[in-house]
Amino acid sequence: MADQTKIANGDRRAWLGLLARAPAEALAALWSDYGARPEFQWLRTPEIGGVMVRGRAGGTGAPFNLGEMTVTRCALVLPDGTEGHGYVQGRDKTHAETAALIDALMQTGDADAVRAKILEPLTRQVQAARSARAAKAAATKVEFFTMVRGEDQ
């Protein structure tokens, strides 16, 4: 089991966030190509629930309840005692299980391989999709120009 203190929370935060946001099909394809099927035991079997999303009045003021979103979570443990947690958007239990397994593997000696084969390609896919939308938005930015006025003629 890896020494937990060596893994910065920032790193773990980043990969858990990526696994939560990533499209389930994209993650499933990368996980399938990776080919690992580690043994594990459930600490908490996948469970579908809701999270109340909050906003702030005026964007910056007092919090208010906006509405819920669906989330699936689970927790598992590898034979060496490493725990993995999955919290993913939506209702796909396999997505949550894969996220928890990757979270666990990222705390073991497999971390570099998992990062190279799964997390990095997934990051590139998510970023490419985001950039493509941003590029379309940029094309709809209004370029103002001043009309030639009478006194200039």
Partner: peptide, 23 residues
């Protein structure tokens, strides 16, 4: 359907200033 879901918790308030804007 919503009433059948266990509630896992509440989010921290979303940061709309950090929105990736389509519009």
């Amino acid at each position: 359907y919503r009433t059948t879901l266990p509630r896992f918790g509440c989010s921290t308030p979303v940061d709309t200033g950090g929105m990736a804007c389509d519009r």
